[in-house]
Nucleic acid binder design. Structure first.
Ligand code: MN
Ligand code: MN
Ligand code: ZN
Ligand code: ZN
Lengths: 139, 139
DNA sequence: TTATGTAAAGATAATTATTCTCATTTATGG
DNA sequence: CCATAAATGAGAATAATTATCTTTACATAA
């Protein structure tokens, strides 16, 4: 994924293309496993040592607002970010804080079919994602 | 749900029965919609004005450790607690921070069947819960 | 080109949920 | 009751995040 891709994405959203925004966006994509702000900062500082922490949080927020990133729910007091904005599920390790993506169109179809028949009372579904908790076998 | 119920539950888990623990446990059960620590404190202070905030957090933690409460994932920087420890799913309001419980054995069966056939590579599933995001119709 | 306006970044202070420390109090088994 | 470990209260400390304010970058118009 080339540098131009990030610049182009930012431009399309009407965001000014700044080195900081490119670096932060690129960091989340490259780090790839739902990094925390801290992990993102560590990564960026290797090539961009003077970036301010406040800038990182502000940029992350605006990338989330513009749907280039998503926040990932977890039960710790630390926010994590996801570069995969298309519909997908998450595998949560029950022993560590590892979170992996899980895509499964067949499963989505199954669940959508299910809720086509069975409505939830007084609730209009917009999106369903699964939190699959378990253990990763080695690696 | 009587006061003795809470005392009994605590005792069964080997936890000393203190007025604070009973009050906090009771608060989460009565408040019932996944309250924050702050909401719990407000509720308790009505009858128990001198309880310390640190105590509330410590008790909540130990109730979670002993599986009398669960933490609820959300994408805010505030922890929420759940008195329903049996397997269930959550309806998240996309506009407010309302979270409701959703139980559905049929759906669980469907999903379990699905994963009986289709294994996830290098991952052993322990639990699957759905985050269903959408809109509550009035009320 | 230079001036000007605006948005973004940097530095750092403030906020806030949560955790920690430690002196004091309390629950519980004997 | 007593002893004692465990729990609570008060307040300080932490840490993630947010806010404030100044400086910088950069686009556009004079
Ligand atoms: Mn925090
Ligand atoms: Mn916080
Ligand atoms: Zn993801
Ligand atoms: Zn619940």
């Amino acid at each position: 994924m080339t540098n131009d891709f990030f610049r182009e994405q930012l431009k399309q959203k009407g965001l000014k293309v700044t080195p900081q925004r490119v670096a932060i966006y690129e960091a989340v994509v490259n780090l790839n496993n739902h990094p925390t702000a801290e992990k993102i900062i560590d990564y960026i500082r290797r090539n961009h040592p003077n970036i301010a922490i406040g800038t990182v949080y502000k940029v992350l927020d605006s990338l989330v607002d513009n749907n280039l990133l998503k926040k990932v729910k977890n039960d710790k007091d630390i926010m994590r970010y996801d570069a995969v904005v298309s519909h997908h599920h998450h595998l949560y390790c029950s022993e560590t804080d590892r979170i992996e993506d899980y895509e499964d169109e067949l499963l989505d179809k199954l669940i959508n079919e299910y809720f086509k028949n069975k409505k939830i009372e007084k609730f209009e579904i917009q999106d369903i994602t699964l939190q699959i908790t378990g253990k990763f076998n080695n690696n």
